[in-house]
Amino acid sequence: MVTEDDIKGDLHTHTDLTDGLATLEEMVRAAAARGYAYYSVTDHAPDLSMQHVTDEKVLDQHDRVRALDRRHHRMRLLHGTALNVAPDGSVDGPDAFLAGFDLCVTSVHSHFSLDRQAMVRRLVRACEDPHVGIIGHPTTRLIGKRPGIDADLDEVFAACARTGTALEINAQPDRVDLGDEDTLRARSHGVKFAIGTDAHSIPQLAQLRYGVGTAQRGWLTPDDVINTWPLRRLRRFLRKDRTDRAS
């Protein structure tokens, strides 16, 4: 089964550009200290109403990530974004804007009470977007505070497998989403997974172990988890490249 030592990088993290507590540079240094081969910053998109960020600030962060990437020879940096899935399944931002990111983690952040069929359509459409590489905290549950969404998850799992979209195992202790039973079911559909911390501070990078533990209870191997893969294979997957994924 997958272990914490297999993880080559964290694909879902935040900085103080949006709702994180540490700067980009501080988060990158902390990730490098963990020995990662690659690391992704995925601050929230400008269109998410809870944030106060502009396209210009995002583009400036892009340039800063690229500059830091040139300085970190042992750890490659990816510039991503965390998108919101609208009720109709569309995501934040025009194609030209989204194409500039290395990856898009897309999640439901609102309208949690849509009916079962509408929620399935919403998530399936998000999976079908060519820019969406990962569905973050897929059921949106907050343990002890909010139940997961009402959706036929098997339909969502099938859509993820069909479109080459990974499902996140979010390692935040109040989420742990997907849970172990859903992870096992999704794996039976042929889904791939990303174990992400969704870290909003440096100490939260260490919460990766909770996601790994959930993955183990779902019987995942390193091949099931995209952030155990070499960067070249990971990039092909995030482009939804259908050719030669197994190399």
Rank of each mutant, 00 (worst) to 15 (best):
H62C: 15
L77W: 05
A96E: 15
D182F: 02
L208K: 01
D177P: 04
L21R: 13
T183K: 08
V41L: 09
D182A: 05
A82N: 15
T13E: 05
C160K: 05
T106V: 15
T163K: 13
H79A: 13
I143A: 06
V225L: 08
P173F: 14
V105P: 00
V58I: 15
G133D: 07
D5R: 10
T139L: 03
I135H: 05
Q204G: 00
G213P: 01
G148N: 04
R209M: 05
M50R: 14
A96H: 14
T23A: 12
A86S: 15
D95I: 01
L238V: 07
G89C: 13
V156K: 08
I202L: 07
P138V: 04
R66I: 09
L205P: 01
G93V: 03
N84K: 14
P222M: 03
R162H: 11
Y38W: 10
G9K: 08
S201D: 12
L153G: 04
E168C: 02
T140I: 03
V58C: 10
D182P: 01
H79G: 10
L114M: 11
T13I: 13
L114P: 00
T197S: 06
G164F: 11
R162K: 14
R217K: 12
G9Q: 08
R233H: 11
L98K: 09
V85R: 06
A37H: 15
R116S: 07
V91T: 14
K57G: 05
L83Q: 14
D16C: 12
G35V: 06
C104V: 13
V58E: 09
T42H: 01
H189S: 09
K192G: 06
I143F: 04
L17V: 03
L220P: 00
D115L: 03
V28R: 07
D95R: 12
R232D: 15
A206S: 13
W229G: 08
S247G: 14
K240T: 01
S110M: 15
G80E: 06
A199F: 07
P138E: 02
H131W: 04
G148C: 01
G35W: 14
H52K: 11
G144S: 10
A30N: 06
D180K: 10
T139P: 00
D241S: 09
D180S: 15
I134V: 15
R209L: 06
H72N: 13
D174N: 13
D244R: 09
S40I: 05
L178D: 02
H200G: 03
H72W: 12
V132C: 06
R232S: 13
A99P: 14
E56I: 08
G218S: 11
V176G: 07
V85L: 12
T165E: 02
D6S: 10
F97N: 04
E25R: 08
V212F: 10
G89N: 08
S247V: 11
I134D: 00
T183Y: 05
V156P: 00
Y36D: 07
I226M: 04
N84G: 14
I149E: 00
M75Y: 10
S188A: 14
T140W: 09
L153M: 15
